[in-house]
Simulated scan of single mutants.
Amino acid sequence: MHHLDETTRTELEAAAFRHLLRHLDEHKEVQNIDLMILADFCRNCLSKWLVGAAEERGAELDYETAREYVYGMPYGEWKEKYQLDATSEQQAAFQAQQARKQGREESSQNG
């Protein structure tokens, strides 16, 4: 992608991001905890990254507005309709993933 001009690259990245949001919207059965376990990010992370990107550019974007964009509706509504309580298996997998992540961070700091 280095051969593309910056505008084209940005447009492609934006299109891919919008596609990711559509994909997540089409797969509401994929819970945020599942995403955190497998990929170490979730819909809330995407919202925070949008807010951070806005701040870097001097634009105003609050977290709730970003979440509504990412979720396609107000977060409370999405949570009520689609979010399930994490199972004990999901909670254990998340804790294990966090422990592995912590171990990697400690290794990189000590190495």
Results as ranks from 00 to 15, higher is better:
54 A>G: 06
67 R>W: 02
97 Q>D: 10
81 K>G: 11
73 M>V: 01
92 A>F: 11
83 Q>H: 13
83 Q>R: 15
43 R>V: 00
89 E>Y: 12
91 Q>L: 13
61 L>E: 02
88 S>A: 14
75 Y>V: 03
28 K>E: 00
76 G>V: 05
91 Q>M: 14
46 L>T: 04
30 V>Y: 06
85 D>Y: 12
39 A>F: 14
94 F>T: 03
89 E>D: 15
45 C>W: 05
75 Y>F: 11
95 Q>G: 12
37 I>H: 07
63 Y>H: 14
96 A>K: 11
65 T>P: 04
36 M>V: 07
33 I>E: 10
77 E>Q: 08
75 Y>I: 02
83 Q>N: 13
79 K>R: 15
63 Y>D: 02
77 E>R: 05
51 V>S: 01
96 A>L: 08
85 D>R: 15
47 S>P: 05
95 Q>P: 12
34 D>L: 07
45 C>K: 03
44 N>M: 12
88 S>R: 11
67 R>K: 14
53 A>R: 02
36 M>K: 12
81 K>W: 10
75 Y>S: 01
71 Y>D: 00
66 A>S: 07
37 I>W: 08
85 D>E: 15
62 D>V: 13
96 A>D: 14
32 N>H: 08
73 M>G: 02
43 R>E: 06
61 L>N: 07
54 A>F: 04
29 E>R: 08
74 P>S: 02
65 T>C: 06
34 D>M: 12
58 G>Q: 11
46 L>H: 05
64 E>Q: 10
34 D>C: 04
87 T>K: 08
44 N>V: 11
67 R>L: 05
66 A>K: 01
76 G>H: 09
42 C>W: 02
71 Y>R: 03
56 E>V: 13
94 F>M: 09
60 E>L: 09
67 R>C: 01
39 A>H: 13
86 A>P: 04
36 M>I: 07
55 E>P: 00
60 E>I: 10
61 L>T: 06
72 G>Q: 06
49 W>V: 03
96 A>V: 01
60 E>M: 11
79 K>A: 14
57 R>P: 13
34 D>P: 01
47 S>H: 00
58 G>P: 12
33 I>T: 15
57 R>N: 14
30 V>I: 12
76 G>L: 06
38 L>G: 14
37 I>M: 11
61 L>K: 00
29 E>L: 04
30 V>Q: 01
72 G>R: 03
77 E>F: 00
43 R>M: 01
78 W>L: 03
48 K>D: 13
48 K>F: 07
49 W>M: 06
59 A>T: 12
86 A>R: 05
